[in-house]
């Protein structure tokens, strides 16, 4: 059911360049990109229940590995692959260290990873250009053609992340991760290899971020440390997954789509207040949508609404009668 919906949604997004302009295509790229990031986060944050805030570190490293490989003369596709593999290896090594932490300590550690990678990239000026950033070779073609190509690639990444989610969900790995989420000690006791499972989830959560980062770098043509390793990004992505429903299959896609559209709307209309409005959305989400959009029982909600409406109607009718 949700698989069919995601396929239809992907096709609809892919058709946007045929029917709409460059602006809409750009938004579609953002939607696909953040969907892929939120799906990645879902492996470690949703299935496993580890509060990871390392997304921006993986994304930023992907940007830089991709950009540096392209500047070294490699074709874009090869650079993207190198970034994916590089970030996955980084996550595997890192995971072996920081996945020993739990709860608050893990959260703080994963945020610190973003800061450390950003600081190293920005002070290693001879290679990374430091605070000046890096120019990335532009893709050839008219803006329309390039945007459409980037959109298809981002959608392919999103599709890949979704397929990986479905496979993990139906495999031993997904089952083990859910066990870890519920009770790690008990999972360990009944024979789940918790360390390996957690590292697998962490690597899965990094891999697509690295790829997305490298494609993003090719798309925008210029990257710098503050933009690539932003704390805002690292919190925004989990918020998207939570908005849709963490641990569900399609939740991150729904959340990313809704969030990007809301953000676009607020950027366009309330430029000065957009940060506060996003903050209000987060607060609202925590209090009123703790399970995400997909976990609302829409049938019950509709029943409640219609019950209210008929109650209102009977009220107004009786008022009208009283007046008459």
């Amino acid at each position: 059911m949700s698989i069919a919906a995601v396929v239809a949604y992907t096709i609809a997004l892919a058709l946007i360049p045929q029917f709409a302009g460059n602006y809409e295509t750009r938004i579609a790229i953002s939607v696909a990109m953040f969907s892929a990031l939120a799906l990645s986060w879902n492996f470690i944050g949703g299935f496993t229940g580890y509060p990871s805030f390392s997304t921006a570190a993986f994304f930023g490293l992907g940007c830089y590995i991709g950009a540096l490989s392209q500047r070294a003369g490699l074709p874009a596709e090869a650079a993207w692959m190198i970034a994916t593999v590089g970030v996955a290896a980084f996550a595997a090594a890192l995971g072996a260290i920081i996945l020993r932490l739990k709860g608050h300590y893990f959260a703080i550690g994963s945020i610190a990873i973003v800061e450390v990678t950003r600081l190293i990239i920005s002070s290693w000026g001879s290679v990374t250009g430091g605070g000046d950033g890096l120019n990335v070779p532009l893709m050839t073609g008219t803006p329309d053609v390039v945007a459409a190509r980037i959109l298809y690639i981002m959608l392919a990444v999103m599709g890949g992340a979704f397929v990986a989610t479905v496979i993990v969900d139906r495999s031993r790995l997904g089952f083990g991760l859910r066990c870890i989420h519920q009770n790690e000690d008990a999972a360990d006791m009944v024979g789940v290899d918790t360390t390996r499972f957690k590292i697998a989830a962490f690597v899965l959560s990094a891999l697509f971020c690295g790829l997305v980062g490298a494609v993003y770098a090719s798309w925008v043509g210029y990257i710098d440390p503050t933009d690539s390793f932003s704390i805002l990004l690292t919190v925004k992505v989990p918020v998207m997954a939570l908005l849709g429903g963490a641990g569900t299959l399609a939740g991150p896609i729904v959340g990313a789509g809704v969030f990007v559209l809301l953000e676009e709307f607020f950027w366009a209309n309330f430029l000065q207040w957009n940060r506060a409005i996003l903050g209000i959305i987060i607060v609202f989400l925590i209090f009123f949508l703790p399970g995400g959009l997909l976990k609302i029982r829409y049938k019950n909600l509709l029943k409640k609404l219609s019950a209210n409406r008929s109650a209102d109607r009977s009220n107004t009718v009786s008022e009208g009668e009283a007046k008459g």
């Binding site: 509060p51 709860g103 959260a107 940060r275 506060a276 903050g279 987060i282 607060v283 703790p290």
Partner: peptide, 22 residues
């Protein structure tokens, strides 16, 4: 869990930050 409380305080921080910059 920490994910909820951290996200909530981050949301509140975005509001306060925005108010201060304005």
């Amino acid at each position: 869990p920490v994910l909820t409380t951290l996200t909530l305080t981050f949301g509140l921080d975005m509001i306060l930050y925005n108010l201060m910059t304005v």
